[in-house]
Amino acid sequence: MFIRSKGVLALGLLFFLSAGCSSTDSFDRVSTMFTSSFSDPEQSVSIQSSNIEYAFTQKDQHPEKLLIQVIDDAQDTLDISIYSLTERNITNSIINAHQRGVKVRVITDRSQSEGEAQAKRIHQLLDEGIKVKENTHSGLMHHKTTIADRSVATTGSFNYSAAATKYNDEVLVVIHDNVIAEYWSDVFQEMWLDQERFAAISL
């Protein structure tokens, strides 16, 4: 089950649920709350009445299916920055997007890529000609984000792993908003071009 609703997003504090609001609460009230909390446009972006979908693993809402739908709907570009990528169906969906002509780029975390399960998925992507980069800096590349066609962005705690789809307490949030998706695309592009902090993975 996917839940689609009208919501408000403030970057860095995405989950209106954390404010004690259910999906049936007044989103105008939630919007007012977040808008009044963030007044500096350089520090945050507040969007009223954005289309938001979310899915919780432990509510049997299958975030992996919601993510795969976003990937399958991509027509032109697919930028993925993901800490952990080990789930087979998600990997296959990324490969399918590439095979139908979508420009796919992936950034992941070096420490995760050293694990056997993720190394296998990364090699699948590389075998298909998909470009993959990993961080070379000392911190983690901890994003869990997919941006499709510069118009849809996903985030949340959800890693692209079997554990996240079955066992963990996870949430995936999908934001249908051009302003947000374009900004996140720009951030991804900066990461992709940063040769000091990221490097290509090769076979």
Rank of each mutant, 00 (worst) to 15 (best):
S5I: 05
S5P: 00
G7A: 14
V8G: 06
A10L: 13
A10D: 05
L13C: 05
L14I: 12
F15S: 12
L17N: 09
G20T: 02
S23T: 12
S26P: 14
D28W: 05
T32N: 10
T32P: 02
M33Q: 07
T35S: 13
T35A: 15
S36R: 09
I47N: 04
F56I: 05
Q61N: 03
Q61K: 12
K65S: 15
I68N: 01
I68R: 11
I68P: 02
V70G: 09
D76M: 10
D76Q: 12
L78V: 14
L78A: 08
T86E: 07
E87P: 00
I90N: 03
I90V: 15
N92T: 13
I94T: 04
H98A: 14
Q99C: 07
G101Q: 14
V102Y: 03
D109W: 04
D109K: 09
R110S: 10
E114L: 14
E116A: 14
A119M: 02
R121E: 14
H123C: 03
H123M: 09
H123L: 15
L125D: 02
L126V: 11
K133S: 01
N135E: 08
S138W: 11
L140G: 07
H142C: 03
H143L: 10
K144I: 08
T145S: 06
T146L: 14
T146C: 13
A153R: 10
T155P: 08
F158M: 04
A162E: 14
Y167G: 00
N178E: 14
I180S: 00
A181Y: 10
S185L: 05
D186E: 14
Q189S: 09
M191R: 11
M191H: 15
E196S: 15
F198M: 07
A200R: 13
I201R: 13
S202M: 15
L203A: 03
